[in-house]
Design a protein around this nucleic acid. Structure first.
Ligand SMILES: [Mn+2]
Ligand SMILES: [Mn+2]
Ligand SMILES: [Mn+2]
Ligand SMILES: [Mn+2]
Lengths: 217, 217
DNA sequence: ATAAATATTTAGTTTTGTCTAAAAATATTT
DNA sequence: AAATATTTTTAGACAAAACTAAATATTTAT
């Protein structure tokens, strides 16, 4: 597997989780920052390798084999992120870019040793689940903060968007995984929320609220 | 810098340490396992980037810039090897191959953090010195076991050859970095040595002796 | 000093992954 | 159900890094 092939497989995987039907050529092109024609070329190649099922004009889905492979790449990405944060004291906004490179290192043994070294973490620094060596991962029933009920006690358990800008905004507002959140009120006009965060009151926009995962305490 | 360019720079660096004059096209081809014509192509490219000084038919040398870059790649390679052995409990024969991939990860900050995490090691698991972030490294006056004087006390400080086969041979003979070695006698016919290793007597071939670095205790 | 052997470079291909522009298929509007 | 818009694929080109085969330069041997 080349780095390029792995990146396509990973993107198709991430898109599949959101929309389980066939994935569009254009959607892939948008995520990889390439042209639709390049995507078509790669889909043919991945189809030849039986990593995806692909029919012209009908979009693409991962095969069993492709699905497992995707989870192994995601496993590597997230384990490296945990390593960078927990052991090398990087901040959660710094690790994604480096993990994008590290996820392509080819050694199953390395990842299993790293997994053990880190204490078999179930989640990465952004709250995303880490597949184990068999591709299994825990699921928690998280919802978006934008869908929260008023006056219930929630905990922040993840971010939907891992961009540097968003993560640094959260740092600035002292919002992190494990923060206690209660929605005090919702503004009709712009869907902004007034929330209680660790005993302090704060107003956040709808755009922020729809990128934060929470669960009931 | 592409992975391919980095591999060429690193090979030219390693060859330079052995023979400080211009490096042959063929010598590079032999190390990289490629054809001489491919080497010529790459030397032109590296010359354009001012990483090497190159004149047709006259061999090649690293520029200041290329030399520093080479040391940064070697630094990454050796730090990762230390990590794999000291933290993830890999054996010294398993790490080179994985480090060949890890050395191309592009993040200075990552390597400086890893360096700190490992306690700023001066040597890698094979006894090779690790350049610091400025490219400086310690030099010890080591010699080959094949050049040792009789009946003097030496310590094993490194291996010249890091192949899996050689390292596993050393494991089998219980020879490791730090082992105490005294040459008891040398056979005229084949230059084999009878040595005292950690209080036991052992015979080794000339080929082994010329791949082990030692220094006086 | 010439011939032979070796080393190196050039010229022309190949493969991979990308691109642009044009053609074809599908989806959406009227 | 056409017409229009959008999406996707095809065709052809390009750059990087490799290759083979042929041409040159350099070194070694006679
Ligand atoms: Mn990430
Ligand atoms: Mn993450
Ligand atoms: Mn090594
Ligand atoms: Mn080493």
């Amino acid at each position: 597997m080349t780095v390029s092939e792995e990146n396509y497989i990973k993107v198709i995987y991430h898109l599949s989780l959101v929309s389980p039907k066939g994935i569009n050529t254009n959607a892939i092109a948008g995520m990889i920052d390439t042209k639709a024609s390049s995507v078509t070329d790669m889909l043919k190649k991945l189809s030849d390798k039986e990593l995806v099922s692909y029919q012209k004009y009908q979009g693409v889905t991962l095969t069993e084999k492709g699905f497992y492979l995707a989870k192994m790449i995601v496993r590597k990405h997230r384990l490296w992120e945990v390593f960078l944060v927990n052991k090398l004291h990087f901040t959660w906004d710094e690790v994604h870019e480096i993990a994008e490179e590290l996820e392509h290192i080819q050694s199953e043994k390395l990842m299993n040793r790293l997994d053990e070294f880190l204490g078999f973490p179930a989640f990465d620094p952004h709250g995303d689940p880490i597949p184990n060596k068999n591709g299994e991962m825990v699921t928690i029933d998280k919802i978006l903060l934008s869908e929260a009920d008023l006056n219930l006690e929630y905990v922040c358990v993840g971010v939907k968007n891992s961009s540097v800008e968003f993560l640094q905004y959260l740092d600035k507002q002292k919002i992190s995984l494990g923060s206690n959140i209660k929605v005090l009120s919702k503004e009709e006009f712009d869907a902004s929320l007034t929330i209680e965060l660790n005993l302090k009151t704060l107003t956040i926009s709808h755009k922020i609220a729809e990128n934060l995962f929470i669960k009931i305490q």
